[in-house]
């Protein structure tokens, strides 16, 4: 492939939205009330919308008549580039909110910078998505505060969720070789530079939510290299089920 690095770079962004959207899709109809069901579905729809624009672009780069669905659904697990954070399961609503918030803050910072990409298509997707993503962060941030500063039970659950996901945050700021090439050429965003703003924002919200900022210095990584957690295979089994069982058909 001629633009392998650009292709990899796009997947690095797109896969996060796809996998998180897939997790949120599991929840549809099972939320704590109709209002949160509707809001979480909205977020999933935004993520799938963005992801389709990225994969359509990636499919064009890949050539060979590839479609967005080929790129999204017909890779082996090792070729998915999403961070470990987004593939973690919906253990309870506190986990859903913690995972969402810890991703949303990053996502908004990324989209803000991506608007300035030299790649017109990526910049356009970012410009279109930024309003959506800032709504996501408002939604998850508000719920973080509600659950943190709600009842004793909810604070315990929310603190446990934040502690659980904290080790997955550092990976957001790693860059792969392809990322570095794209940063050099003015297409990619140097996510390592977003780290400070990220932890500042997260710390402020946690404090407002009366939650402790975890002090755990041990972080987990691997997703960007395609080394995922044990949850990922099951998620992909569902995602890919139809495409694998009935290859080469239109739906």
């Amino acid at each position: 492939m001629k633009n392998q690095d650009l292709y990899n770079y796009i997947l690095g962004i797109a896969d996060n939205s796809l996998i998180l959207g897939q997790r949120l899709g599991e929840l549809c109809g099972h939320g704590p009330n109709l209002e949160t069901d509707i809001a979480l579905t909205n977020i999933a729809l935004d993520l799938f919308g963005q992801t389709r624009s990225y994969y359509q672009y990636a499919a064009r780069i890949a050539g060979d008549g590839k479609t967005e669905d080929d790129v999204a659904m017909l890779r082996v697990e090792r070729d998915y580039k999403n961070v470990l954070l987004v593939e973690q399961p919906n253990t309870h609503f506190g986990h859903v909110i913690a995972r969402q918030y810890l991703f949303d803050v990053f996502h908004l910072l990324l989209m803000t910078e991506l608007q300035n990409s030299k790649d017109e298509t990526l910049a356009a997707v970012a410009r279109k998505g930024i309003k959506e993503v800032s709504y996501h962060q408002r939604f998850s941030g508000d719920w973080l505060k509600r659950l943190g500063d709600g009842t004793e039970e909810s604070r315990t659950k929310m603190q446990e969720a934040i502690d659980h996901f904290w080790p997955y945050t550092a990976e957001l700021f790693d860059t792969t070789e392809s990322d570095q090439k794209m940063i050099k050429s003015g297409i990619g965003v140097d996510v390592s530079l977003l780290k400070e703003s990220y932890y500042k924002e997260v710390t402020e919200t946690l404090e407002e939510a009366t939650l402790d900022v975890p002090e755990n210095p041990y972080f987990k990584k691997g997703g960007k290299q395609g080394i995922h957690t044990e949850h990922m295979g099951f998620l992909l089994t569902e995602l890919q089920y139809m495409q694998r069982t009935y290859p080469n058909m239109s739906w």
Partner: peptide
């Protein structure tokens, strides 16, 4: 009614169908 259809959101055969199904189930919640 959201349940039997929600059952297929994670397995929809294409991204277009997945998004349309999500939107439909969301309409039902509405």
């Amino acid at each position: 009614g959201m349940l039997p259809e929600g059952n297929w959101i994670t397995r929809a055969p294409s991204l277009r169908r997945k998004a349309a199904l999500l939107a439909k189930v969301q309409d039902e919640a509405g």
